[in-house]
Design a protein around this nucleic acid. Sequence first.
DNA 1: TCAGAGTAAGCAAGCGCTTAGTCAGAGCGC
DNA 2: GCGCTCTGACTAAGCGCTTGCTTACTCTGA
Lengths: 196, 196
Amino acid sequence: MAAARQPSTTDARERLLEAAVASFAARGFHGTTTRDIAAGAGMSPAALYVHHRSKEELLHQISREGHLRTLALVEAAVADETGPVGQLTRLVEEFVRHHALTHTTARIINYEMAALSPEHLDEIMDLRRRIDAVVRDVIERGVAAGVLATPDPAMTATALLSLGIDVARWYRDDAGWTPEQVAAHYRDLALRMAGA
Amino acid sequence: MAAARQPSTTDARERLLEAAVASFAARGFHGTTTRDIAAGAGMSPAALYVHHRSKEELLHQISREGHLRTLALVEAAVADETGPVGQLTRLVEEFVRHHALTHTTARIINYEMAALSPEHLDEIMDLRRRIDAVVRDVIERGVAAGVLATPDPAMTATALLSLGIDVARWYRDDAGWTPEQVAAHYRDLALRMAGA
DNA sequence: TCAGAGTAAGCAAGCGCTTAGTCAGAGCGC
DNA sequence: GCGCTCTGACTAAGCGCTTGCTTACTCTGA
């Protein structure tokens, strides 16, 4: 209702993006053809270029939006809680649930980075460094305050992020575990790892 | 000296495999051309087909040998130690060191599985299930014996394997941590996670 | 003499992307 | 309301190139 300029146009653009997500996740960026994406959106091969500049630009957009959402998620977890233990608890729980829920997109974001152009990769790497920094900061503050205990906060932060990211690799919707179950278990594992 | 049938032949075959590992790890299976591999081995494009049936067969061989080595590694860790805590300690330490040391190969093994033919994928999935089973068994025996404590041994086993596998994604030779440092830290994290 | 490692040349198919166009609908004078 | 114009979503066809792999051959050493 509000300000939907051209409903059909926006829709086609979005459908192409969704088809790209499905194909990239299933076959990888290089294993996906522009014809796959167009067919997935129910359009001719040329339609892709009406709405997007190139196949790589589709990947960049998926990657950029995904990383921005993850950065917002970890920043919100830190902002909404007080104290490193509460922040770590909330952060890991939401990070893991998010990676289980959006495992299709998360797989592209984390495993197709090498297919980005050098400029786009730079931008994405910067977002990743900011996500890393938030997590490392929580651990370091917790250790400094004596409420967390680990001999190497930087490596523990790497391990915590790693654990969450890898959920995107192995999680299946029909695997028997819900995103909430994995998130709750991983939250407990994280607190043990960080010496809470 | 011993029984090296045709030294130069074996050498060319091996060089092609090594070039395939380097290319697959850097650009992915679909991002790698047979010309990349042949050039990496210092040979003409057609030489690849003197020693290997297809590009996919190269991937299968790399994947198969890698998985067999990992299975042997986890089985040896269990065989060489007595008691679940000792076995878990040894298993995680060697699993993680192995993934850091051979991160190039490990990256292919864990992230290019979708490019395998259905038959080859079946074979690899069977090896992976056997590796999973060894780890899950250690945790379950530990919990049953009261020397480990975790509410969901299967999910904890998944998390432990996941943590080790993901080392292949983020580890760099020039990252400032040696494989031994990562292995030692991850071993301590694993013992905390499993409630030792 | 001949087996087998290696190559130059190239084939059919598939690739990312472009071109030149069709067509439905919004806007506008009358 | 009616015809006309114009815009922009969409496509049929296809271009130039690259792909995995093959063929027909040479060369080397036992």
